[in-house]
């Protein structure tokens, strides 16, 4: 029986795989696949997917080897960035919650 942490990790792999296999290059995300993923999976965390320039910038930042595609290792750095932002948000919530009480 997988734990919650293991399930969360598997679900990230599945999400990547689902979007990466939309075109002929199955192991990587093209710009279009990345935009679809951001639109459908990250609409609560990110607002920038509606802005083509922002998608381009994120794509460029993630694509560290410059091949125009985002592979799983490169995708993981997006997850890292979001998680760190999410954790900082969590800390802020805790501290503002603490002040109220």
């Amino acid at each position: 029986m997988p734990s919650e942490l293991e399930k969360a990790m598997e679900s990230l792999i599945m999400v990547f795989h689902r979007y990466a296999s939309k075109d002929s290059k199955n192991g990587t995300l093209s710009r279009r696949e990345l935009r679809d993923l951001m639109e459908n999976e990250l609409s609560g965390f990110l607002k920038s997917q509606k802005d083509p320039a922002a998608v381009d910038k994120i794509m460029k930042d993630l694509d560290t080897n410059g091949d125009g595609q985002v592979d799983f290792e490169e995708f993981v750095s997006l997850v890292v960035g979001l998680s760190i932002a999410c954790e900082q948000c969590y800390k802020m919530q805790l501290s503002t919650g603490g002040k109220k009480h």
């Binding site: 969360a8 679900s11 954790e87």
Partner: peptide
């Protein structure tokens, strides 16, 4: 996917001490 990311953060917070480590 957002719930997976939230879960990764929650697991850390659950086990970490008050110093967040």
């Amino acid at each position: 996917m957002e719930s997976a990311i939230t879960k990764l953060v929650e697991v850390f917070t659950k086990y970490a001490g008050k110093d967040k480590r």
